[in-house]
Amino acid sequence: MFLYTLKRLFQGLVTVWFIATATFFAMHNVPGDPLLNDRAVSEAIRANLESKYGLDQPLSTQYFIYLRNLSTGDFGISFTQENREVNDIIREHFPVSAILGILAVVFAATGGILFGALTAIYRNRLPDFIIMILVILGISVPSFVIAAMSQLALVSLNDLVGTTILPVAGWGTILHMLTPALVLGLGTMAYLTRLMRSSMLEVVGSDYIRTARSKGVPAPRIFTKHQIRNAILPVVTVLGPSIASITTGGFVVELVFAIPGLGRYFVQAVQQLDYTVIMGTTVFYGAFLVFMVILVDVLYGFIDPRVRLEK
């Protein structure tokens, strides 16, 4: 098990290096000049800026300097936020995204498992139909529409009651987090519901359930010990990557609800060709995603003994 973990970690490291390299060269090939701005500057100022950011070096030299800095965890200084280090940006804003992301995943996982189990129990009956229609909506309606509509609903709700029950936007208290987290987790919740449902149905027809029933095991016990426990495995598998993708994909929700998360910096950096921030956030997010996948793989061994045996 220890060796297996070590091997996976090494593989992860190679993946992160690959992400860093691919991003570096892709970014330098995006058309546009990061140092250009509304007001044109003289040659002398431009030369100064180029040397400040090391853009006067050949690309290969830039790449090796970059790798060297990366190995010490130094992402450099932002092009647009001239006095801020990329590390500071990540340190200040990632926790916000992470809190929002974790809450969203908690919502998504809880909702997904409960609704998925419910639809499987009531297969082809009314609760199943209603929930599946909502699931299809949740998967197909993009998050910016849901975000805008839920915000509008909040305004109407507050208007109706006469005071602000739930804040419309902003960040700081529990109340600020609930709506955005729910909106952010909705897509994943819908996906997990479907996954849980099909996995439950697959399990219910299996031999061991039949055996358990014929032995006369009480229904709640079959449901808990045999059905849920087996059906939940695929859900756990996708949970790790979805924590990463929810945490990194909150740009729209962060914008609509004025949340100071990292997603905003991630997207704006690409729009403004802020090289150091693009590199910093991409590599950070990439490493985060890789780490989550490894974590789930390792945890899987504890949940499912078969995985342990194979390795």
């Binding site: 200040e92 926790p95 916000v96 809190i99 974790i102 809450l103 908690v106 919502f107 809880t110 804040p167 902003g170 960040w171 700081g172 208290t173 529990i174 600020h176 987090m177 609930l178 100071p260």
Partner: peptide
């Protein structure tokens, strides 16, 4: 979930906004 929300809110407090 309520417990998790409470814990998260505690952590968010350090990065909170002015209300």
């Amino acid at each position: 979930m309520a417990l998790i929300v409470y814990i998260l809110a505690f952590f968010a407090g350090t990065s909170g906004a002015l209300i």
